[in-house]
């Protein structure tokens, strides 16, 4: 049934800290490694060692340059996977019922046995979270590692999505964003976590934490953390001599 549940028990999702992410792509690699044997296996690659490699990835890391009006530039690494939206437009457009949002935890999944591969869900998703598998002829997507987070054969600390468990910087957190007292909800509230493209009306669950503010070029020039000049009136003989030599 592709009508969305009126309410989900939990709102499982990710909080991604753009201040911490170093853009190492480890989350994407571990995602691929886990999921190519998981719920939607395999994550097919075509021409993997050739000139035009492409394939199914549930997680991709974009890198953006953000330039302020003052000309101050920052590099922001930006991992993106399914945001498990509350009003998931990919689910409602599905003509077969293969796409669905789970009532118990809000995870959006595709049933590969009933998907006809019409690709309309990938057109409806604002974020590019849907991945078409040309070989299997069906749509695939991030499962929030549904086969991991409830897996009691794994040690408890491993029962988080593969991307979260592998992140060496700790930039990804997993939890229930529907519960205001959960660690992820608190983290998001403390750091001003935000949703992507709210104007699209999909109500994504995942939150992104903005990079922390940094001193601007102008502030740096005014001598916040810079070295104090060696040559001033109070400098000693040695310092003034050094200054003279170096200035030649």
């Amino acid at each position: 049934m592709t009508s969305l549940p009126a309410k989900t028990g939990k709102k499982l999702g990710l909080v991604i800290d753009l201040d911490i992410c170093v853009g190492c792509h480890a989350c994407a690699v571990n995602c691929k490694e886990w999921n190519t044997g998981g719920h939607s296996a395999p994550l097919t690659d075509s021409d993997p060692y050739g000139a035009q490699p492409s394939g199914v990835w549930f997680n991709r890391i974009h890198t953006f340059e953000v330039v302020s009006d003052e000309g101050d530039s920052r590099t922001v690494h930006f991992p993106k996977s399914c945001l498990h939206c509350e009003d998931a437009p990919c689910v409602t457009v599905c003509p077969t019922g293969a796409s669905y949002k789970r009532e118990e935890d809000g995870i959006v999944l595709v049933n590969g046995d009933t998907c006809i591969g019409c690709k309309l869900c990938s057109w409806a998703c604002p974020y590019g979270a849907r991945e078409y598998d040309e070989d299997a002829g069906v749509m695939k997507k991030c499962t929030l590692c549904v086969d991991r987070i409830y897996n009691e054969t794994l040690p408890p600390d491993m029962r988080v999505p593969a991307c979260v468990s592998t992140c060496p910087a700790g930039a990804r957190s997993f939890g229930d964003l529907g519960d205001p007292d959960s660690d992820v909800s608190r983290l998001s509230a403390d750091r001003g976590g935000y949703a992507l493209m709210p104007e699209q009306g999909a109500k994504p669950v995942n939150r992104y934490l903005p990079p922390r503010p940094r001193k601007t070029v102008a502030e740096e020039a005014l001598g916040g953390a810079g070295l104090t000049p060696v040559a001033d009136d109070k400098a000693g003989l040695m310092a003034r001599w050094l200054d003279k030599i170096l200035s030649m």
């Binding site: 953006f64 302020s68 922001v76």
Partner: peptide, 16 residues
């Protein structure tokens, strides 16, 4: 799309 508009203009620096 990135939510980084408060910091300035956003350009793609490196594709995935």
């Amino acid at each position: 799309a990135t939510g980084l508009g408060d910091m300035g203009k956003v350009h793609l620096f490196e594709a995935p």
